[in-house]
Nucleic acid binder design. Structure first.
Lengths: 337, 337
DNA sequence: CTGAAAGCGCTTACAG
DNA sequence: CTGAAAGCGCTTACAG
């Protein structure tokens, strides 16, 4: 557990110099390259790490970043854990601590957002679903001097707060394009988020195909139940279709469950896609589900980079992250899981 | 953002006194009750919070606790997120930071356990599955002066490291007792963890019932697939049974899926129980599943209390946490979800 | 090109 | 009963 002073004494230079060299904040100070190298290599040898508490104290920082998570995704998707894990690792790599809170309801969020908490963090990453009252709150935090970035779905791009979310329109688009490419010509849609629906429409337009509005089923939430009911409605309609774009793995699971329960042989099922690429897709669907990624890791990385930049006085701009398609049995039989 | 000195100046006393009063560490110091109350109330009014960095620095602590999570439970159970969330809240309430890492493989764990990390934490909470090589590693950390507690399943109780886990024998016991109470007399068992199996046996013995060893199906893992295959084996055996104790919600889900796929009417299904009380039980089973809790929140609370106690120079002892039964449709039709 | 010194906000042994 | 003072491990403006 070597300290700066011990390291400096060992090297025979002042600890101020060592600090400046190691943190690469030389200011008006100069060093010979030789001394610099000696300091760097000895620091490595002795495994020196600055004490984050002392550093933060001196620099007037807290050394922690808050990560507030509104639970998103249907239960069981584990999107949240993936996000937290990645944020934690990225922050830790930069010597920052993490203050996590997970919320199910807005009220809990507001309670947790108290002055006591804000005394302990330099910045706040908020993840979940974007909505107007949340944005107002966050703008107020910014005005009070707390740096904020979001990794929220459906963010308003006019907001001055940088946001990092997957491109939902592209999610709808690549799922639909995939179905078209493998030969589907009548593709139903379990609809809830307009951007994803737009992607569904765009893929059809690009391929010169018409969409049948009757095959679009609006739903209220991302539960398995809503997928089940949507499939039931489609079935009742009686219009044949050979593809189904669901907006969540959980909904796709519910749709498959309906088909299974009603005894439809699997060979007769439409080709189905989901969204999230969650354990539900790989393990909890009747047929392993082709799905579009939610890019939680990427948004975590970007959110951390952005909050760090803001804390250090820099800037950060929003980014819409492109998703990827993960092909499984539900659209291409014989695919290895 | 009031500091100790500002608060002291406002009160007209020395900041040393304020520190001692607020932290309740009076040592040889005395204060009149009146002064004490004045200090306390003014601190509250001004919303004073000690700077955790300064406090930790002075006290020779790091102010952070590591939480290392070996992913446990089948995917989709969200046990891990529940645990992290609770640990985070408990630590935060005590002014401690959190350094989370989530691991899937032992190797990642070992890589993360490096000196650089240990410079940043006062203690380590390890959650996941207990195994011997892990224990050796943890004992070594303890020897190196890092405080460790575990919240691991299947811990060896001879270990000197305090462990907080749900009572697995009781999990098997209360699930089985419940089935016996509602009238089941031939109860199959999807078996993987010996303690849970022991609980299954104990419940029978207590009720004066014999168990049929042929209805015990050994499995290799907690996946849905293993539950599916176990149900298939039971079906092939042809021995009638009216209850089924699965050792995980995921296995129960797989067993139900088999029954559904083979077209067995739900009325003819055995009464089924799971373990974990996860979203799988409530949302992803063909029938909402009666399940036994994993008590992740309680073990998180206990682990935090224990690590804090150790850091502050106290002691901590292991605890086996009693689980609870959550009754749903799969054993008592008509139960509200 | 380099070092001495002040100070971040606390805690606590010590002196009165 | 109470306060002045040293010092935790850093960073950085300043003097040489």
């Amino acid at each position: 557990m070597v300290t700066l002073k011990q390291l400096a004494a060992d090297l025979g230079v002042s600890h101020g110099l060592v600090s400046r060299v190691l943190s690469n904040r030389m200011g008006n100070t100069g060093v010979s390259e030789k001394t610099r190298q000696t300091i760097l290599s000895r620091a490595k040898e002795l495994n020196y790490r600055p004490n984050p508490n002392a550093s933060a104290l001196k620099r007037g920082l807290r050394g922690s970043v808050g990560v507030f998570l509104h639970k998103i995704g249907a239960q069981g998707t584990e999107l949240n854990l993936t996000f937290v894990d990645k944020v934690a690792t990225c922050l830790s790599d930069r010597g920052l601590n993490l203050l996590v809170r997970v919320f199910e309801e807005d009220e809990e969020f507001l309670t947790a957002c108290n002055p006591a908490l804000f005394r302990r963090i330099d910045g706040l990453i908020v993840a979940g679903i974007w909505h107007h009252s949340l944005a107002l709150k966050l703008n107020q935090f910014e005005a009070d001097g707390l740096h904020v970035v979001t990794a929220c779905h459906g963010a308003n791009h006019n907001s001055s707060i940088p946001n990092f979310e997957v491109d939902q329109e592209m999610q709808g688009y690549i799922a639909t394009r995939h179905l078209i490419e493998i030969g589907c010509r009548n593709i139903a849609h379990i609809n809830i988020r307009p951007p994803r629906h737009q992607g569904y429409l765009n893929a059809h337009q690009e391929a010169g195909l018409a969409t049948d509005p009757r095959l679009n089923i609006d739903t209220e939430d991302f539960t398995r139940q809503s997928g089940y009911q949507a499939m039931q409605k489609l079935h009742t309609l009686g219009i044949p279709f050979d593809g189904l774009v669901a907006q969540a793995d959980s909904q796709a699971a519910g749709a498959m469950y309906y088909l299974l329960e009603k005894g439809h042989p699997k060979e007769s099922w439409p080709k189905i896609t989901g969204v999230d690429d969650s354990p539900i897709a790989s393990d909890y669907c009747a047929i392993p589900l082709t799905s579009v990624t939610a890019e939680m890791k990427t948004s975590a990385e970007m959110a951390v980079a952005a909050i760090v930049s803001k804390i250090e006085g820099g800037t950060a701009t929003s980014c819409l992250i492109p998703p990827r398609l993960v092909v499984r049995e539900s659209t291409v039989p014989g695919t290895l899981a």
